[in-house]
Design a protein around this nucleic acid. Structure first.
Lengths: 132, 132, 132, 132
DNA sequence: TTTT
DNA sequence: TTTT
């Protein structure tokens, strides 16, 4: 069991990239407030990296924008990578299995009349690297 | 909502430290298998940093040992810190709210006859730094 | 581990009652859509009984109304009771531990300017009966 | 979001039945202790009805026995049915999406050498009735 | 680096 | 109806 459930707002628009084999990968940072979003100041949030793969990645790219509130269900993954100067680092991120839209996309961003309020993804343990 | 539920084995004995004000903090790494712990090789695990505070920290120190299987419920926190040479880093860790013991402590590690199989903690958002 | 996490809408205003010892108990039914709340018809929901105790019960009574969307975290409990004609029955209900308000109370139901968007409760295993 | 996560012991061997179209359905009752399984007496458990469908149902039938400890992830469903004398009743049950075996099958129940310790299922919202 |  |  490796289960993560988060409710928060996108801190940025999702970025969608493609692996060499053509798989879509969306990534964004989710601002998860620690104390209910009250008046406790602007720093009371965890900014949690989210990645989504394939069909779910494309749903994110097409339907999510900065500021939108979502529920993310996924698993917590520790990924190793090397910095440009050769240091080994570890990064934690949540690999989304499903994303529930708790708000519609902002009207200003374009039409959003008919999107599904839920979109389900598959759990993936991809062999491929996340492209940078 | 910021909820994490993990089942895994302690990759090491918990380390218990104390903050300047005397609060106990336990930390350990939890090995969470990705594919059900079968024969897929030894590398298929995420090693997830866990911290526990106060009474739950002491319960960890007294009752958990390397290799023991537990269920951890907590929240995912991103913490900023500085390296010795002044670089800013961010680390993700799970702040445990409760830990359920799925196995008794190894007999070889000492007496463990009558411990509770569950121990519950409170969610904490401590002001204090985790001591290193 | 006995954990339930639901996102849905109140199917009715909460009813707040008091036990003989004066503990508040709120109860309501939560409509949880099965397929993302799309156009699949009105019958695709589970109506799940929720109960909340004490301070959380009062928060429910004061801040929640029919139709409002909430996230409920709790545990699943099977309770035995007797019908008026002496039959034994079992009912399942979710005992709320925390409720996150995903929407503000309807303006028409009264002022809702400044309520907290989160309200946290304690897990309770009360000895007392839920009053009818 | 309709998510249930339970850790408990099978109160009985699973019963596997088949729908008219041939789908397997397993059902059993899961005893979920309220206070950590300590010495608080024998009545401190919720007996929660679990159902599993298709491949997961067969895995249950083949690998689970009374008394075995498992982790069940699923959704909470309210199902309507009629009693033999025509009364309408509602029953709550957890439709399992995945089951993690926290213990191997009892040796006395037969060979259990090489079973997977995890088995994953799909979320189903079947049109068909659960056979009685 | 950041959301409301 | 029940598990350890």
């Amino acid at each position: 069991m490796n289960k993560v459930i988060l409710v928060g707002r996108l801190a940025q628009d999702p970025e969608v990239r493609y692996t060499q084999s053509g798989k879509a990968v969306a990534s964004f940072s989710l601002a998860v407030n620690r104390f209910g979003g009250g008046a406790q100041g602007q720093n009371n949030a965890d900014f949690i990296p989210i990645v989504a793969w394939e069909k779910l990645a494309e749903t994110c790219g097409n339907n999510l924008t900065k500021g939108q509130r979502v529920l993310v269900e996924g698993r917590l993954q520790i990924r190793s990578y090397e910095t440009n100067d050769g240091q080994k680092r570890r990064i934690a991120e949540v690999v989304a299995q499903s994303i529930e839209f708790l708000e519609r996309k902002q009207a200003s961003t374009g039409d959003a009349g008919n999107i599904d309020v839920n979109s389900f993804g598959k759990d993936v343990f991809p062999e491929e690297e996340i492209p940078f």
